[in-house]
Amino acid sequence: MTSRPIPLNDPDAGDDTTTPGSGHDAPERKRLTKWQLYSRRFARNRPAVAGVVIFALLVAFALFGSFFAKYDHVELDFLALSDPPSPEHWFGTNNSGNDLYAMVVVGLQRSLLIAVVVAVGTTVLSALVGTAAAYFGGRVERVSLFVIHFLMVAPTFLLLAMMSNDSGGDWKVIALVLILVSWFFQARTIWTMSLSLREREFVHAARYMGVPGLRIVLRHMIPNIGSLLVINFTLGVVGAVMAETGLSFLGFGVKLPDVSLGSLIGIGASSISSAPWLFAFPAAALTLLTVSMALIADGLRDALDPTSAAGGRA
């Protein structure tokens, strides 16, 4: 626990609400910047740190795993059909001779890419719609809330399956459709939070100084819900991975020759008692991915929440 004296960060609009104690009453105490405080609180949460480590290893595996692969994921080895894991094929092979190790690497890349794109898109869209609806009010608010409430009762998984099936397994279309059916729950939460935000003094001040509405939303309101957005992003990754793998498992998502963890599990499911390794390796990668991301989200929630009981001794 070392801390060095640092000048207070700029009292930029919005950021000041989460800056810890001003220090006027205890001048001899050394100040921490916001990020030092957050990282220290995060590091105290051991499961969250484990989550970061696991997640980093998975990303490294997805990025660099193919350098160690002896086979390409579409290459067929006819001398090794449905082979259990061996020195030659580390994760075994399927019934047409594909190397499972190479397939898991590619599948993990695909699943991660879709998940990150969807999480970014969902977070951005929900933040914009939620805060704009709260700030502008009136017709903008009514229309956005109508759309949100309508989507909440719509059979989204069904629409998702139809649209992505129609796209023929293109991951970009799948990601786009996933964004369209998953932004509205977050947008509703953000709208509720922004309702109190729009009555705050700094928003009024900005408005009376003649700052245009869109800039108030972007510069003053969205930074204030930053911590919520970070958490939403990590949870969005979990949700997107689950939705995408579910779809691909059923055969409505990513299709051959492209593979994702879901479609690999789908292949493994048909031969689960005769070739359990086809299920075990992609399933392990998938579970590690979702659980590590959830642990990170949990740790971030404790670290970023100023009222959290876990942050007593920063």
Binding site: P47, G262, I272, F279, T287, T290, V291, M293, A294
Partner: peptide, 24 residues
């Protein structure tokens, strides 16, 4: 709590197929 945060984030496909393996 530790168990719950893990089980909540196991994908349903993995959970169901894992149970199939265990049951067999």
């Amino acid at each position: 709590q530790g168990t719950s945060i893990i089980t909540m984030n196991i994908p349903i496909v993995v959970a169901a197929l894992g149970l199939v393996l265990l049951a067999i």
